[in-house]
Simulated scan of single mutants.
Amino acid sequence: MSSYEMLVDEIVSLMGMKGSYAGIEKLESMRREGDTNATTCLGELYLEGAGVIADTEMGISLLQEASEAGNPHADDTLGRVYLYGSYGVPEDKPRGHAYIEKAANAGIPESIGTCACDYYYGKGVTKDLEKGFEWALRGAKLGDPVSNALCGDAYQTGEGATRNIPLAIQHYREHLKSNSENTDVMCDLAICLADIGGEYGTFPSQDDLTEAFGLLGKAVEMGDVRAHCLLGIMYGDGNGVPQDFELSHHYIELAANNGFEPAQELLGRFRRTMRGKWTL
């Protein structure tokens, strides 16, 4: 845990025990002594209106003060404010990215993940798949879940990196350790494990197929439409499960009815047998 995170925990605890004023007073005192973590924390409280009356102008001013003094956590917060246009601040992606990359260069894992995405998807900066992937590798080594997901995407698609399905699986699994509710990553991991669609030419083990089926089942329970479609494909192909065109049609139809275009296309391939059963 960084010194900044420790301070945040301390202030939250103090405000809980003695009230908001005690926490604000301590931060103001530390700020006067030149503590940039305190200035950053104070700025964020003004943005959120936590313990003080919300004041975006004051919050931004305090964060800029901390940023100019070299605090990377202030850079990270300012970057996100401008990237996403938060707290009524006009969106300015190039300015936001500049703050994020400054924080990333200081080694803040979350900033590294955001910086990686900025380059990989061209947000606030010229799109550069390879540079985005390089940043993601740095973040993944620090355990950043966003970086792990992006590394998985790059290895799965071969965009920004040489396609490598085993490495994609590794990074997706790492992401899910800290973000177990991300159904997009569950679906991508399932595709890699089971080679759904047969694009990769791999030979999944029964353990891999079982894991993929479990991931999709969980994502389906959480309402993910792509997971419905993928589960339907597995049933239609008999991929790790007994082939069942009725279940295949059921799941694909649910995805199609919820606007998932690939499912709508697949649905048109089903035909009724003479006995009224679905087949492909």
Rank of each mutant, 00 (worst) to 15 (best):
M17P: 11
K18L: 15
G19V: 15
Y21H: 12
G23P: 10
E25C: 07
K26T: 08
K26Y: 03
K26L: 14
M30D: 03
R32F: 13
R32C: 05
T36N: 12
C41P: 00
C41H: 04
C41V: 10
C41G: 05
L42D: 03
E44Y: 02
E44S: 04
L45T: 03
Y46N: 03
L47Y: 01
L47H: 05
E48W: 07
G49T: 11
A50V: 13
G51I: 10
G51V: 09
V52Y: 05
A54D: 03
A54N: 08
D55S: 06
T56M: 06
E57W: 08
M58C: 13
G59H: 10
I60K: 07
S61Q: 15
Q64M: 14
Q64T: 09
E65I: 03
A66T: 02
A66Y: 04
S67L: 06
A69L: 08
A69P: 03
G70E: 00
P72Y: 13
H73G: 12
D75M: 11
D76E: 13
L78E: 00
L78Y: 01
G79T: 02
R80A: 09
R80Y: 10
R80S: 13
V81P: 00
Y82D: 00
Y82M: 02
Y82W: 02
L83E: 07
G85R: 10
G85P: 08
Y87L: 06
P90M: 07
P90T: 09
E91F: 02
D92L: 09
P94G: 09
P94Q: 10
R95N: 09
G96S: 06
H97I: 12
Y99D: 04
Y99F: 15
K102T: 15
A103P: 00
A103K: 00
A104Q: 05
A104C: 11
P109H: 10
E110A: 13
G113L: 03
C115P: 00
Y119E: 01
K123S: 14
K123E: 14
K123C: 11
G124Q: 09
G124C: 05
V125S: 04
D128H: 09
D128W: 09
L129P: 08
L129K: 14
E130N: 14
G132V: 12
G132L: 12
F133Y: 15
E134W: 05
E134R: 12
E134P: 01
R138M: 10
G139P: 06
